[in-house]
Simulated assay, not measured.
Amino acid sequence: MGRPRSISDDVILDAALSLLMAKGEGAVSFGAVSKACGLAPPTLVQRYGDRSGMLRAALRRGWARQGEAADAAAAAEETAQGFLKLLGAEDLLPLVVASRSDPEAAALAAAWRADVERVLMAKQGCRADAAAILFAAWQGRLLWEAAGGAGFKLKDAARRLG
């Protein structure tokens, strides 16, 4: 029987996610995660097998968190614009970029997007294609605002699609 885990997977995966969000996928290594959570690199190897296994587990945790945030935002807001505003997106770009190279993470990302689009359909009272356009407009606006560009008002796009 193995000894009890002194540092939970949640703590380790939170450390890996923090590195991913702050510095990108390349920053997630056994050495960096070890420093961040205080667990020896060989122990991380025992738990996750290799770097991609640890990164995959961190991405699963990240998408689960995004799902929880979407559920909370959907319950708290009645409008599509309010839902998207409350949902935020600070953590999305690093998750999306890192998820592209892993089929499991890419599937989680696609499922999250589909869930968000279903909420938009319900709150906006629109068809699936209009919800997809609203989602894309929201993501595009956030991306370009992060790059310093002026964005359009999401409520104007929502009004036109409704």
Rank of each mutant, 00 (worst) to 15 (best):
M1C: 09
R5F: 00
S6R: 07
D10R: 13
V11R: 15
L13K: 01
D14F: 09
D14V: 07
L17E: 05
L17A: 13
S18I: 04
M21R: 11
K23R: 15
G24E: 06
V28S: 02
G31N: 08
G31M: 10
G38L: 04
G38H: 03
L39P: 01
T43S: 15
T43A: 12
Q46A: 13
Q46W: 11
R47C: 06
R47V: 03
Y48V: 03
G49H: 12
D50A: 12
D50E: 09
R51N: 00
R56F: 00
R60E: 03
R61E: 08
R61Y: 00
R61L: 07
W63F: 15
Q66L: 15
Q66S: 13
A69E: 08
A69T: 09
A70I: 00
D71L: 11
A74I: 06
A75M: 07
A75L: 15
A76N: 03
E78M: 07
E78Q: 10
T79H: 14
G82L: 05
F83A: 01
F83C: 00
L86Q: 15
L87A: 14
L87T: 05
A89P: 00
D91E: 09
D91T: 04
L92M: 10
L92W: 15
L95T: 02
A98Y: 14
S99A: 14
S101P: 04
P103K: 06
P103R: 07
E104P: 01
A105L: 05
L108D: 02
A109R: 05
A114G: 09
D115H: 14
D115E: 13
R118E: 15
V119P: 03
L120R: 02
L120H: 02
L120N: 00
A122C: 04
A122V: 08
Q124E: 15
Q124D: 12
Q124V: 04
G125Y: 02
C126L: 07
R127Y: 10
A128C: 11
D129L: 10
D129Y: 06
A131D: 05
A132K: 07
L134K: 00
F135G: 01
A137K: 04
A137W: 00
A137D: 04
A137C: 12
Q139P: 02
G140D: 04
L143M: 15
E145S: 10
A146V: 05
A147L: 08
A147F: 10
G148D: 07
G151W: 15
F152C: 08
L154N: 07
A158L: 06
A158R: 11
R160D: 11
R160S: 14
L161K: 03
L161E: 05
G162E: 10
G162A: 14
